[in-house]
């Protein structure tokens, strides 16, 4: 894939994971997350094994852990919530390093933390090995309504156009000495957000007109996307199936 439309979550490569068709990866990632969510929270070892499975996928995809870790930071706000739970939950409490912690809260916090982390890591892995446009075509192959796919396609394209427009408008404001330091000086910024909205709306109309002129009738033409053989599916489903088996085994352990 050309570097022309690289996004910060995508890491170009030619591994077996990169080469898998996007719709296969979406299904596998979804099943994996389901398996993680279905695992009982007390089955601590199972989460470890599921994590090892993911590590296996990273090795196959040649993604360095540090690269993933920085992109998984998006989870941070949820971690804060998970950390607070043991302090504020009610029920039986345990003493730890002089702090009184609720057992239920500890488990609930752990539950959010471990499932959230694994979920984010799965999503980041999917994004790291699949270009955005393939994600969209994968979704459309999975019968996601075409209007949703059209909207996603247009959003991918015009987010950058609108961001560039916003940068130019900001530059033009700043060049005329605008330097908002206090809330009551934000008026100009707010007004330019309004102007940006109107401009984007008008651009939407022009894009629609240009699409109509090339025969658009409300449905995107179906571009052929690579289909997946049974062998590909079987190979790709391995991590998801193992994760699911682990989740089931968790009910015995717990």
């Amino acid at each position: 894939m050309a570097a022309g439309h690289a996004h910060p979550l995508y890491r170009a490569g030619d591994s077996v994971v990169h080469r898998l068709p996007a719709h296969v990866k979406i299904v596998v990632a979804f099943l994996f997350v389901l398996a993680v969510v279905a695992t009982p929270r007390e089955a601590f070892a199972v989460f470890g094994l599921q994590f090892l499975l993911l590590v296996g996928v990273w090795v196959a995809a040649r993604i360095p852990p540090g690269w993933l870790a920085t992109r998984a930071l998006i989870e941070a706000p949820f971690v804060v919530l998970a950390v607070l739970l043991p302090f504020f939950a009610t029920g039986p409490r345990v003493e730890w390093m002089g702090m009184s912690l609720a057992v239920d809260g500890l488990l609930a916090g752990w539950n959010i933390l471990v499932k959230g982390t694994l979920g984010v890591l799965v999503s980041v892995t999917l994004a790291a090995t699949t270009p955005l446009r393939d994600l969209v075509s994968g979704l459309s192959r999975l019968r996601v309504p075409s209007m949703v796919c059209v909207i996603a396609t247009l959003m991918l394209r015009y987010l950058e156009v609108i961001a560039a427009e916003a940068r130019r408008m900001r530059l033009a404001r700043v060049s005329r000495g605008h330097d908002p330091r206090f809330v009551w000086q934000l008026g100009a910024t707010v007004r330019s957000v309004g102007a940006l909205f109107l401009r984007s709306y008008e651009r939407g109309e022009r894009v629609h007109l240009a699409m109509l002129s090339r025969g658009y009738t409300g449905a995107m033409p179906a571009f052929t996307t690579a289909s997946a053989s049974t062998a590909t599916w079987s190979l790709a489903l391995v991590p998801a199936v193992v994760a699911a088996l682990l989740a089931v085994s968790g009910y015995w352990v717990a």
Binding site: R133, R206, R214
Partner: peptide, 27 residues
């Protein structure tokens, strides 16, 4: 009638140039 609009950003809306060129004929 092939109209080339004034702002190419209005015309080019697909993720890649090739996809965009294919859009019209596919329709």
């Amino acid at each position: 009638v092939g109209i080339v609009f004034q702002d190419p950003d209005d015309q080019l809306f697909m993720p890649t140039v090739a996809d965009d060129v294919a859009f019209g004929p596919a329709n």
